[in-house]
């Protein structure tokens, strides 16, 4: 990305942040009374994806996070721990959903290389930290209520990612420690079938979601990848499902696609717990990484 493009991106983010800020200000004046009412149906606010957007665990969905309806504001905080054979990823963050239209999110990811860091000469427990600033706007549709229509809810969004290991990444031939993913998601609850489907197209340069930076010196181009989720509702507070996340493959070693099976449980409207078994493939130098994904979300 050239300097001017970088500036443009930054301007765009600032513009969106400003819009979000003024929306919040209006809301604080006009809507304080409904801030805490949780009025979407259980689990229809989704859980939080590893990059902080409302969705499944691996991928953002078109739904706007939090339980706020179009007259309300909702908010969530989350903590997720992915424990693979040789690595650990700890993520925490929060989002606000404004009037079931706009979602603003922040997440911080810490990728712990544990002993692999030592093997690579970085030191045991060497950690990459990435901050992710996200925004999502619902374009049209309603995933839940429009049950007589096949039209899904469609949203677009971005995830701006900033990694703290720029010098190391560049020494490894990686182009940048910052990048922005753009995505479009379509989500639909098929209530008569008790099934939820989501498809996301992501436009990205990220290596391992950005934990290993963006682009390489050999290839610094955006590409479109597909992400999908399917969930079966078992009870109003319980869903099981599968997810898939296609990944670019630009590193010297192979980057694999990700998949998982998950169960999400919402004991109350304010709390949900997601447990997944994820297959993450090759990460850095360790092959066949499998592990557990445990996420706790607390919302309003």
């Amino acid at each position: 990305m050239t300097v001017t493009q970088g500036n443009k991106t930054r301007q765009r983010i600032l513009a969106i942040a400003a819009i979000g800020g003024s929306l919040l200000a209006c809301a604080a004046q006009a809507q304080t009374s409904s801030f805490t009412s949780s009025s979407k149906l259980l689990l229809t606010g989704g859980v939080t994806n590893i990059e902080g957007s409302a969705g499944g665990g691996l991928t953002p969905w078109a739904i706007i996070g939090g339980y706020g309806t179009r007259d309300q504001i909702g908010a969530n905080a989350f903590f997720t721990n992915v424990r693979a054979d040789d690595y650990e990823l700890r993520t925490g963050g929060a989002l606000v959903g404004l009037y079931d239209r706009v979602e603003l999110s922040f997440a911080q990811q810490k990728f712990d290389t544990k002993e692999v860091g030592g093997l690579l000469g970085l030191g045991n427990g060497f950690t990459f930290t990435q901050k992710v600033y996200g925004a999502k706007v619902k374009l049209f549709g309603d995933a839940v209520l429009e049950q007589d229509s096949l039209l899904p809810q469609v949203s677009i969004g971005f995830q701006r990612k900033e990694n703290d290991r720029g010098a190391l990444l560049r020494a490894l031939g990686i182009k940048s420690d910052k990048g922005t993913d753009f995505y479009v998601s379509a989500t639909k609850l098929y209530l008569a079938q008790s099934i939820l489907l989501n498809g996301t197209l992501r436009y990205t340069k990220a290596n391992q979601t950005g934990i290993l930076g963006f682009g390489t010196n050999a290839k610094d181009k955006y590409e479109a990848v597909f992400e999908g989720s399917a969930a079966l509702l078992l009870r109003k507070d319980l869903a099981v499902g599968v997810e898939f996340r296609q990944k670019p493959d630009n590193l010297p070693f192979k980057e694999d696609h990700w998949h998982d099976v998950f169960v999400a449980w919402a004991p109350t409207k304010n709390v949900s717990v997601t447990l997944a078994y994820a297959n993450l493939g090759n990460i850095v130098i360790k092959d066949k990484q499998k592990g557990t994904y445990l996420s706790l979300q607390v919302g309003f």
């Binding site: 549709g141 229509s149 096949l150 039209l151 469609v154």
Partner: peptide, 23 residues
């Protein structure tokens, strides 16, 4: 890049639009 993004979103729009032929 923005042009490509536009095409991407337009394509999705068409696919999704096709699904609006509902009951």
């Amino acid at each position: 890049m923005l042009r490509k993004l536009g095409i991407l979103f337009a394509a999705v729009g068409i696919v999704v639009g096709g699904a609006t032929l509902t009951s």
